[in-house]
Every structure is written in C-alpha cells, then in structure tokens.
Design a protein around this nucleic acid. Sequence first.
DNA 1: GCAAAAGTGTTTCTCATACACCCATGT
DNA 2: ACATGGGTGTATGAGAAACACTTTTGC
Lengths: 243, 243
Amino acid sequence: MELSSYISVDCVIFGYDGEKLNVLLVKRTLSEESNHLNFEPDWTLTGNHVYQDETIETAANRILFEITGLSDIFLEQFKTFADPQRLLKPKDQNWLKSIGRNPAIRVATIGFFALVATQKVALKWMGREVKWVPVKEVGTLGFDHNQILEEALIAIRQKMKHEPIGFELLPSKFTLTQLQNVYEQIFDAELDKRNFRRKVSRMKYVIPLNEKQKGVPHKPARLYMFSREVFDITNQELFDFIV
Amino acid sequence: MELSSYISVDCVIFGYDGEKLNVLLVKRTLSEESNHLNFEPDWTLTGNHVYQDETIETAANRILFEITGLSDIFLEQFKTFADPQRLLKPKDQNWLKSIGRNPAIRVATIGFFALVATQKVALKWMGREVKWVPVKEVGTLGFDHNQILEEALIAIRQKMKHEPIGFELLPSKFTLTQLQNVYEQIFDAELDKRNFRRKVSRMKYVIPLNEKQKGVPHKPARLYMFSREVFDITNQELFDFIV
DNA sequence: GCAAAAGTGTTTCTCATACACCCATGT
DNA sequence: ACATGGGTGTATGAGAAACACTTTTGC
C-alpha cells in the first residue's frame, strides 16, 4: 500500500459583491475530542476528500453545494498539488490525525476554481464557520492554500482573457459599469469607459434589455444579460478579453 | 485504506520532425509470466507511477529522461484524470494485475505535455518499444489515452496562442519557414508568409543570426534563434500568437 | 439645484489581411 | 537552365487608445 495516496479537491470559490473580488474561506478547527492538541483555529479554502467511486468533478460540486447551497456554478479544474511535502507542517499533521488519516500518506489535491455572484450565496451555518474575504486581504491560510489561491488567480486571469466567464460573477441582469468593474478588479487595472463599452457592443452575446436600474440616486443604467447560446453560436470569432 | 488511490503521471510527448507534429507512444505488453492472459499488445502514452516521496514534476521528468535521454525539456502539467471508471476495461484491469496492482484501486493520473524537436531524441531501446506517430494518424490507444491526448492538444493550442513555446519544437537554430510550419501544423491552418514574417519581426526575442542553411537545393534561408532572456525582459507586451 | 453615475464621438496609430514577383542555390 | 523554396512591399480596413461633456435620476 506504500504507493497509494489520498485524493482531495480544493475549491477556490471566487465571489464578486459589486465592489471587490472575494474568496470563500472556512474555519479549520479540530473536533472536541482532539482539543488536547491546543490547535489554534485558522482559515482555509473549501476542500474535502473525494469519496470512493466519486469523480473529482462530482466531489467539487458536492463541496460547492454543501457550502453555498448552489449547484450549476461555474467550476473548473486548474491544477493538481501533490508534493509529498505539502502537508508536513506540524499543524497540518495534527489536523490529519484528528480526522483519522495516516499523516504519512500523501494527500494529492486537485484545485478547482468556481465563480459566483455573492448575492446568490446565503452563508448559513452548515456545521462550519464560513466567510467571504476580499482576495487582496487574505492572510496566511492553513495547509498550502495560499499557494493554491495564487495559482487559481493566475488561472482565472488567463481564462478570463479569452472566455466570457466574467458574467459568472454577476447577477443575471447587470449593468455595463458592473461588468467593467469585474474586469478591473480581476486584472487590477483601470479601463476606459468608452472603449470598454464599444468593445462590449461588438459582443453580440451581451444583450441589452429594455429595463433599467431602479432606486439609484443617479441616472439609472440599462441592464444587460449574457447569452451563452448566442456566444456558442458566434464564438468562431473568439474575442479577446485582454485588457 | 479504502479512500486511497494510486497516483501516476502520463506524459504526452510532442515532437516536431520538420514536417508533422508527432506524439511519442510506447508499446504496452505484459511480462513473460503473465502471458497466459493472451494480452494483445497495444500502444499508449508514456506514463508511470509516482514514487514514494517523489513530486509529480520529478516523476514526469524521470519518465522523459528514461525514454528520450533528455532533461530540461519543456514540460507542463495540464489536467488530472481521476475518474474511478477510467481503467475498468478488462484489458486495463489485466494489465494492472500483471504489474502487481490492486485493480480495484483508482489510479489518478496527472497529464503533462512535453515539447521537443524529434532530432534531439535518439530512440534507443530502453526495455520498451517506442515510436513517433503523427498526431493525425494515432489510432486507438490503451487506457483512456486517446482522451488524454485530445486534452493535451487543446492545452498546447491554448498555450501556444499566448506564449512562445513553438520554439521548443525546433532545433536551437531554425528558419522562419520552419517556425511558420510549426504553427500551421498545430493549428491546422495555413498562414500567409509575408504577414507571418512581419509579425515575427516584431518579436525582439526571435533573433536573426548571421548564418544560413547549407546544402539545400534552393536559396538558403537565414537562421534564427529564440532568446528566452529577451522574452522574459520584454514580455510586458504579451504577444498574441493567435492565428 | 446638486450630487452621482450613465451615456456618448472623434482622432490617431497600430496591426491584420490580402496579394505577386524576383532571388540564390544545387543539380 | 531549371526547379525549389527564400525573401520582400503596399493598400485597405478594423480595432486599440486617448480624451470631455451632457443626461437622468433621487434627494
């Protein structure tokens, strides 16, 4: 059995709240009976072991559903972390023991990223403490999760340049300013409003609605929707989302 | 131990021979003593299990070295295949048994792709039969390796659009026609010679040498080299390699 | 009426695309 | 001399970038 490993998935759940890009973290604590280890709770990405006979995609969706109550979230595998040294810190070893794992066995984890509009997620208590944290304010995480988060950011930036996934972070009806802000946040760059709008107007799958914002203390903006159908049809002309 | 898995890596080794894009395959046979299973040999990608205390990158490099005799090859992880059903075909189950594995345990494999100029590889006999096959002529492979090859192709196309990795498939000195041909092969498209050369002339890291082809029965072409140093310095202006 | 964000046009420059002929070498 | 691939220039159109003012609403 010496060649075998545990397999887990870690989901980097990105959420956009209209202002900043956030990531969903869960508090890592030990069970009651392991408390003699005086384990200082800390925060980690959302992850879990893959069940017997379960695909990694199913496992990732399961985690997402358990934590956000949502299914059909945009989710994609981006990298696997399998360094035999990755969970050798005493804290991680203690944690592994506390959940009944053999801490000498490697844990290979497949990293997924997920995109969601934070308003869609009701963070109710599901047995674990959970919070949104702005990506730029994330401190030191448990396990090797800072590294996984970094790689996830690289992956979504790369992906976002060439595929229309910014919409996944917005409600189904959104304004162009909100869309622009998503790109500005993720690329950490400022975009020109007129140029951005001209570019979007060329994307036939961003569809203007006959509907406006309500209750805002300024000129209400027109709402738009994203049509994946139209995109799939017209995507021969693969737009660049490069900023 | 029911939650554990084997971990392997599979390397999709792409080679360019001046004409076509090829992939390196190895013949899958059983050891002498397992021959009662009358196992029909077939072809697979190059892969292997990851040793205890070995990183997956080290394992991939080890496989590459064992098969090609080369180190410092361009190599990158692109996707993990971990479906519990992936090796349930009787042939794969027999093969697993023949190498002493428990066929009921899942094998998760991390796919890497490698790029190399075929001239650099001397295919000597290293205990296994090995051959280059043009990507378009690959037949049915063992395991789920047709799927892994497909995904590898998608990954290198994607990567090649935005990073200067086409050079990895060429000798260190190459002509512009060779470079153009690499892109044409991989994207399965024809490019305009003049436009291609104008585009390349803007890439300061493709450096013209004062050296020409010799012994060709036509006007000898100027040779060029790729400088990763220059690229790393000037890569703020991230060129698109889109065709 | 004022604060706040929405919305809109023009100019300039770079790059993509399309296209046809002469050049240097080996045989 | 001829076959073979090497090498070059121009015109057109699309999109990127830079930039400032008017409009509509809630209060």
